[in-house]
Design a binder for these strands. Structure first.
Length: 586
RNA sequence: GCGGCGGUCGUCUAGCCUGGUCUAGGACGCCGGCCUUCCAAGCCGGAGAUCCCGGGUUCAAAUCCCGGCCGCCGCACCA
């Protein structure tokens, strides 16, 4: 393999302090990576950009919360993970190949093994003498792989079983009622969360792409299926094109995505939920802002057997990468009412939303009433006892007793009450509200994968030097400060510039070697702008700003420095903002 | 988890087959000094290696053998 782009980038990332393998001094542990100083800056910038796109720009109806990583087992029992996040594996005793036990049985016997324990699967294999499909050898014991990390809250006991969350989503579902109340019962409502999750992968072997512990950025977006209120899809995503490889296409063996606007895709029934379509639209713009051109990412619809247990439709957002061809950076799942319904069933909590109706719903009901005056007249001083006994039973029960009673009277607590005091009538009631379980569409991103993507798309080599062309917004270090030579009075001026910039940005003071060396280092670290102080700077009180990708330099008064850098970091071309362009190299 | 291959200063590597001359050599990078007015110049000096870990064979192990860890490739797995 030699040096693929992936290897170059990982080498670069380790060398420059973006990331490295965890617990190195003890030999390392697969599936875990530490972030170094630049890695933390890059990741935070990516996270903040995600926040900007998904939360801040939607703050009227998207809010961010934070919930624990450690989660009592009941939550994942309710969510279905305890059952569906498990794999049953069986090993051939002869050739040592490993197979999914449930898949083998389902294939051979054509039955569903959903929910079968390991012993049951093993019995089925033995009774039907299912053999290794490759070498025909005898199969060993069925083993259970639960991909959730387990722990216990407090002292060890089975009731204290807990798991590290494999997704942040359950924190949003379990908090739905509280946030819905805070949002004054308005839908649509998005609950966002950024946090660490853990999955006990059997064999993670793709560096920082497949981790056992990573940072997830998710929105559980709740809306009313009957009234999605998704104007945004038409306002903002009609022109925008995204690439979709549909499930139908994949089944036909096609691999060329179609270009379509998210709004169209929803209208054509390709995307089943309007909000799923909307967030895919935002996801596409977001990935673009990380430096990935639109033509290098697409959404791939998962086939039914590839989908998670909770999903009615899933699209994975794929980005073209050198090493694996493509890599999944986000998942867009139409979780519909699955999770809330399960939590309603398991917790008995009221996780319903309320829908105002345009026209009232007429509900017919049989109602029972009793004539208090008649009772007073009939029972005189004993009327109080009658009222008391009637009040102890519910109206529904009373209705049942009265309507099923034979003869002219009923007996309650040994008191004989004539039926004539009761009137049973059909009443019509108007209902202006209706309870329902909101539907959910979920966009979900892995932060570390995005870091890798950002690095791969920023990475370039020019004349033997490495340049990381990060978009300014995600560049770990924003500005470099370089005296042309490491001599006074340039050094003193440069230190002053450094102190001023430090108030606003992450800045690197570049010293040692020649100016060319300083620029080369800044380029390699992906620093978008270098402020250079030369001899003219000292006499004229100005500096030059060099832009990384174009190497263009403009000369700006010291007093305008922050303004100019701000414009540059906002993405403006600094050579066209009114300062003289200077050229010092051929 | 199985099989194949690999693991030597921060990085790349020499040495391993044919054990001793290896107190492990080089290059790049790093640190200090000199020099230096715009894109990795030059000179001088310096630091830096548990030879992945553990065990074994041997008078002697970076080198041979066994086990483990980690990585890569293939198989399997990947809600």
């Amino acid at each position: 393999m030699g040096s693929s782009k992936y290897e170059k980038i990982i080498d670069y990332a380790v060398k420059r302090g973006f990331l490295w393998q965890s617990y190195e001094i003890y030999g390392g542990q697969a599936g875990f990576y530490d972030l170094g100083p630049l890695g933390v800056l890059l990741k935070n910038n990516i996270i903040n950009l995600w926040r900007e796109f998904f939360v801040r720009k939607h703050q009227e109806f998207v809010v961010e919360i934070e919930t624990p990583i450690i989660t009592p087992s009941i939550v994942f029992k309710a969510s279905g993970h305890e059952e569906s996040f498990t794999d049953y594996a069986v090993e051939c005793t002869q050739c040592h190949r490993i197979f999914r036990a449930d898949h083998l049985i389902e294939e051979k016997l054509n039955i569903s093994t959903e929910g079968y324990p390991a012993e049951e699967l093993e019995k089925l294999i033995n009774e039907n003498s299912i053999k290794c499909p490759v070498c025909g050898g005898v199969l060993g014991n069925v083993r259970k792989f639960l991909l959730l990390f387990q722990t216990h809250v407090g002292p060890y006991s089975p009731e204290n079983l807990a798991y590290l969350r494999p997704e942040a989503a359950q924190g949003m579902f379990t908090n739905f009622k509280r946030v819905y109340d805070l949002a004054r019962h308005k839908l649509p409502l998005g609950i966002a969360q950024i946090g660490r999750v853990a999955r006990n992968e059997i064999s993670p072997r793709q560096g920082p792409i497949r981790l056992r512990e990573f940072t997830i950025m998710e929105i559980e977006f709740f809306y009313d299926e009957a009234n999605p209120n998704c104007d945004l899809l038409y306002d903002h995503c009609r022109e925008e094109k995204i690439q979709i490889l549909t499930g139908e296409q994949r089944q036909r063996g096609e691999d060329k995505p179609v270009s379509i606007s998210p709004a169209e895709a929803f209208n054509d029934g390709i995307i089943k939920s309007p909000w799923l379509a909307y967030w895919m639209c935002i996801a596409s713009k977001f990935i673009n802002a990380l430096g990935v051109p639109g033509s290098n990412s697409y959404f791939e619809e998962k086939l039914p057997h590839e989908r998670a247990h909770y999903s009615k439709q899933t699209f994975d957002q794929m980005v073209i990468v050198d090493r694996w061809g493509r890599v999944e950076v986000s998942g867009h799942a139409y979780r519909h009412t699955y999770d809330l319904e399960r939590h309603i069933a398991f917790s008995k909590a009221d996780l319903y939303a309320v829908r105002q109706l345009k026209t009232p719903k007429i509900v017919k009901r049989t109602e029972i009433q009793y004539d208090k005056v008649a009772i007073l007249k009939m029972f005189g001083s004993r009327a109080g006892d009658v009222f008391k006994v009637i009040s102890t039973i519910s109206r529904d029960e009373l209705l049942k007793i009265v309507s099923s009673a034979q003869g002219d009277s009923i007996v309650l607590n040994n008191i004989v009450i004539p039926k004539s005091v009761f009137t049973v009538a059909e009443v019509e009631e108007q209902q202006w509200v209706e309870r329902f379980v909101p539907s959910v569409s979920e966009p979900s991103f892995g932060a570390e994968r995005l870091m890798y993507i950002a690095m791969e798309y920023a990475y370039s080599e020019q004349e033997d030097r490495i340049i990381l062309k990060f978009p300014p917004k995600i560049a770990p270090i924003k500005v470099g400060v370089a005296p042309l030579v490491d001599r006074e009075p340039l050094k003193q001026f440069a230190r002053k510039v450094y102190e001023v910039l430090k108030e606003r940005y992450y800045v690197m003071y570049l010293e040692g070697g020649t100016i060319g060396r300083k620029y080369a280092l800044a380029d390699e670290l992906g620093i978008p702008f270098v402020v250079t102080i030369d001899y003219d700077s000292v006499s004229k009180n100005d500096v030059t700003i060099r832009e990384r990708n174009s190497r263009k330099q403009v000369r700006v008064p010291f007093s305008d420095l922050l303004k100019a850098i701000d414009l540059g970091l906002d993405g403006l071309d600094i050579s066209i903002i009114g300062y003289p362009i200077v050229e010092y190299y051929s």
